[in-house]
Amino acid sequence: MKMKGFGRAATYALLLLCSLYFLFPFIWMVLTALKTEAEAYVFPPKFLPGEFRLHNFADAWKSQPFGGYLRNSLVVTILTTVGQVASCALVAYGFARYSFRGKGVLFMILLGTMMIPWDVTMIPLYMEFKALGWINTLKPLIVPAFFASAYYVFLLRQFLMGIPKDFEEAARIDGASEFQTFYSIFVPMMKAPLILVGVLNVMGVWNDYLGPLIFLNSRNKYTLPLGLAAFKGAHEMQVIPIMAITTLMILLPVAAFAYAQKYIVEGMSGALKG
């Protein structure tokens, strides 16, 4: 596919324009992380710091037990990602590739669970976790992820609905069991959307703030976003450490994205042709 000169120019112009909007605040954040607090507040704004204070990162990191927070965040992120990818693949497959009694209603209920604001279910949920003895452990953040969340099920279902019906017909004629059909034919085809689910989950859980805030108590259980929020007091906040830790925190989701990107680029096209 070759593009003509005009199309190419227009594409670049648009890309650059959009980059300004997306990138500029971002660069501003990284540069602020390198400034002194006085420089950050000066007006008219100074774009570059007088001195690139790389030690701001180390200072921010050392000011709290971030090593422990990082470990907790990693545990939660990795386990929930495994749980979501596995459970959502199964559930989405069930909804997308079969017709069965009650499917319409069940699917609406599934979608419905995305529509409940957390404010009103949180206190009952807290009581439930309390009764289970899970408060101040990482379990409330991890375990539910193994039971498929609606958002990813819906997402995967949309992709699965796009695969022609011939595939399982062929498998059935070959005598494959239902699970075999799912596992050896559909899972490979779903690689791109499954990786997408993984990336989205990493980024959501990595930054999740409310769940940890409500269910965790002691600081040795904290995750990174709670540590980040601790720089923000009721009256004043420490802007430099906030920017520094945020900058460090995006490294993992970005790495996950960079890794995932090449699989997504491959798409499902290869598999579909087969």
């Binding site: 949180m122 206190i123 807290y126 009581m127 309390k130 805030l213 409500i214 108590n217 002691s218 600081r219 929020a229 601790a230 720089f231 923000k232 007091g233 009721a234 906040m237």
Partner: peptide
């Protein structure tokens, strides 16, 4: 336990439960 700016949300949830 330090809750910073979100102290009230946490305490309200705790007392409520």
């Amino acid at each position: 336990e330090g809750y910073g700016d979100d102290f009230d949300t946490k305490i309200a949830a705790g007392i409520g439960a």
